Computed example of a mutant assay.
Amino acid sequence: MTEKAFDPDNVTVDVRTTYLPSHSSPESGQFTFAYTIDITNFGRQPVQLLSRHWQITDGNGDVQEVRGDGVVGEQPVIEPGTHFRYTSGATLPTPVGYMQGEYTMIVHDGGEMDPKEQPAFEVPIRAFTLHTPTALN
């Protein structure tokens, strides 16, 4: 019997952001933020994150697209009922902006098949705000 296709809604993405004043230079138009992401697998099969796609929009409306394999140098396998957490960063020319995107993932089969040959699914990352403590007051 073939297992039902994996439901992407079984993977959730939660984000926390922090402004990093020690890595920023507002007078030079450089505002640096850290974001910590928790990816949780509520499904019954392990999944593997293959790649990411970000759209980073600054306060001027300028968009930067970022695509790449994995996250922070890894293509993690997330077992059922567990999560993967990582922290990364972004620098904007404005004190406020936002990010959104998606992860491309597969159901992890234990390495029996080349990941690039498996059907992939997208997990959306809802827009989240990057802002200095006083930017939204």
Rank of each mutant, 00 (worst) to 15 (best):
T57D: 08
D58H: 04
T87P: 11
G89C: 08
H108N: 03
G81F: 09
D58K: 00
E3W: 13
Y35H: 03
E74N: 14
R67Y: 14
G73V: 11
Q30H: 13
T2I: 06
V47L: 05
N137W: 13
E117A: 03
F128L: 06
H53M: 14
S51R: 07
A34E: 08
V123P: 04
G70N: 11
S51L: 04
V72K: 02
T104C: 10
E79V: 06
N41E: 05
F84N: 01
A34N: 10
P133E: 06
V63F: 14
V66L: 08
T129A: 14
G81T: 10
L20R: 13
E117D: 04
D7E: 02
F128T: 05
E112L: 14
T104W: 01
R44L: 10
Q75S: 10
G81N: 06
P115I: 11
Y35T: 02
D69G: 15
T36S: 12
E112Q: 14
T17C: 04
V47F: 08
T129Y: 12
A5K: 10
D38W: 14
D14L: 11
S25C: 08
Q64K: 15
T36N: 09
L130P: 00
T12E: 03
T132Q: 00
G89V: 04
Y19S: 05
E74T: 11
N60E: 04
L136S: 12
H53I: 07
H131G: 03
P115W: 14
P115M: 10
Y98M: 12
R85W: 12
D7T: 10
E65C: 09
S25F: 06
F128N: 03
S22H: 13
T104N: 09
G81R: 03
G111W: 03
E65L: 13
N41L: 02
H83Y: 04
E117R: 11
P95I: 02
L136F: 14
E122V: 13
T132S: 01
F31E: 01
Q45W: 00
L136D: 13
F31H: 06
F42L: 12
R85V: 09
